[in-house]
Design a protein around this nucleic acid. Structure first.
Lengths: 348, 348
DNA sequence: TTGAAAGCGATACCAG
DNA sequence: CTGGTATCGCTTTCAA
């Protein structure tokens, strides 16, 4: 359904004031009756030079009067570096957990005097995106997920990035890595299900694109947990719609499964609902476990078992970035950062 | 991140692998045996000048060999303007709907050759943030929510922003406005409840900070819808926890309500669950309606009635931005963009 | 204590 | 067709 933007008629506005050109430090200097150098000294509190108090005041007043705002591009062009930390903007709907992590990270980095921007790289893939990021000459780049190759890392470093950090399934040559091994999620879930006697485990794999980076490793984790046991694993592709869930539930009994690990709590809820509507008892006939430990899981009946994830603290990551920026020559660090803990409730 | 980290001792001055300096267009010119001007012409496909094919090839090869990436800051410093569209990064967990909107917007803007960045402005309030944004000299700024005053708009415009667009409850002097009047949400919900004979309506107001910008207008919308009727309205502060919901449900009958509008579907679910656990029949004894039309509402029993919101299309907004950038002198446009439609299911 | 001037990287004008 | 060169806004020596 298309939505029309309704324009509201406005009373004729006062003729906008002549678009004065943007004030520069030279304008400030002129107004204050000093040189541009002095302006720079004053506004940056340069400690190497001492400026008389009256002069400082005049400069500050002139700056305020003109509404002067320094030009970041000119500044970093001159300085030869920026304090810009860049990360790609998430392209998939981002959960509460990850959103909170990003926020914490931004806060911690700004405490360290970095400017954080999320670059809207849509349609740009991998190393192609790296070029776009490199144009901004960020001092550090943080890349969640896979998609950035060694080549992309090289582009970024060659263009002056002093730290490249990946948050993903595996480490990339030349970059620091925060390993988030989602196999651990599937592994925990499968061990839990096995441990409570389940032998035929379905694994919901979302059909929505963009989620493979998480869903496939989670699936692989189940496979590994089951390796060497007599339990079986059945991948279950599922779109995030009621219809798809109903269809899957309709043929549930032919599948011969006694448990299902559902990628995350949302898919788990979708499927559990469909199963219940089919008259399939949860957890009696089929156990269900999700992941991400959303609030909603606690509200379902039966309460949904889940795998609780633990991300690194934004503060720690900020410190890693800062350390890497200060010592770009150091050997890239690699940390395992994804905690996965089963929260056993009623559905399994 | 309390895992063991591998790090080299930092005492020796980082005789790091010769940190070659970042290649510039001059390096490309040198390698290709041409002037910097020619490099610029070739790499930007300048149509005003015609460069011989062999020269073009040599330049491209040199650029590729050096891994040359143009310096955005230098470019826009010289050009006097950028193609940067800036928006603050959301500080509250952002819903699917809004996330999708942002994505669409970024895509549409990049089709129009803009670079979109979300600026991590944490702790910066209002006009203070505007200064930080202005340092990047964006060609356009998009600000969701309230918080940007006329003063902030002025700072941005004075620093060269050719378009400032707010998405919020009311328009701001000097800026284009996409009015999202959340009162319409509460209004629709209340009219629906009234229309089906309910007379004592509770309104859930989240206690979580940062949501007032939405929750208060929604509440106000209910008040207005009820004005002149004999129905009553009772605000119900509620934290997003099971305990809080249980406590509210425990004293439900003293409240004497026969309906509740729950800010959004998540709070609605939380409360509905608690009501049901108290043995209160929904919708028999109390009708429940949420907002945002989340998938989860369809999975509840009874299915949750909701207010479906419709945001403007990202494409439309992108076009508004582009129009405003091309004609900065134009009178700021004001559009009403929030569609609110009741989706009547089983809980009301 | 302040000012003059050299550049950072890229572009566009104007000669050659 | 191609090459010098001035310029964008700012910082930072070096002189005065």
């Amino acid at each position: 359904m298309r939505h029309v933007m309704v324009q509201i008629p406005k009373t004729p506005a006062p003729a906008s004031p002549a678009p004065r050109s943007v004030p520069t430090s030279a304008d400030v200097a002129r107004l204050a009756g000093v040189s541009r150098a002095t302006v720079s000294y004053v506004l940056n509190n340069t400690s190497a030079v001492r400026i008389s108090e009256p002069t400082r005041r005049r400069v500050h007043e002139a700056a305020k009067e003109l509404g002067y705002v320094p030009h970041a591009a000119a500044r970093s062009l001159r300085a030869g570096h920026s304090r810009l930390v860049l990360m790609p903007a998430p392209t998939i709907p981002v959960g509460r957990l990850y959103g909170q992590f990003i926020n914490e990270l931004q806060w911690a980095l700004s405490r360290l005097d970095y400017t954080v921007v999320q670059h809207g790289s849509v349609g740009l893939h991998g190393d192609e995106a790296a070029r776009a990021w490199a144009e901004l000459r960020p001092v550090a780049v943080l890349v969640p997920g896979a998609g950035l190759g060694p080549k992309g890392v090289a582009v970024l470093k060659r263009s002056g990035a002093r730290a490249v950090v990946t948050l993903g399934p595996e480490s990339v040559e030349g970059a620091h890595a925060l390993l988030m091994d989602h196999r651990a999620v599937g592994h925990s879930a499968a061990r839990h299900l096995c441990g409570s006697g389940r032998r035929h485990i379905g694994v919901v794999v979302p059909e929505e694109p963009g989620l493979e980076a998480f869903s496939l490793p989670r699936l692989e984790g189940v496979r590994r947990a089951l390796h060497g046991t007599h339990a079986t694993m059945t991948p279950l592709p599922l779109a995030h719609t009621e219809e798809a869930a109903a269809q899957l539930a309709a043929r549930w009994r032919e599948l011969g499964l006694d448990a299902v690990f559902a990628y995350n709590d949302e898919y788990a809820m979708l499927l559990m609902r469909a199963l219940q509507d089919q008259g399939i008892d949860v957890p009696g006939e089929t156990a269900v476990i999700g992941a991400d430990d959303l609030m909603l899981g606690r509200l379902l009946r039966p309460r949904l078992s889940t795998v609780h994830l633990e991300l690194p603290s934004g503060r720690d990551l900020a410190e890693l970035v800062d350390r890497a920026v200060r010592d770009p020559g150091a050997v890239p660090e690699t940390h395992k950062v994804l905690g996965a803990t089963v929260v056993h409730r009623e559905s399994s």
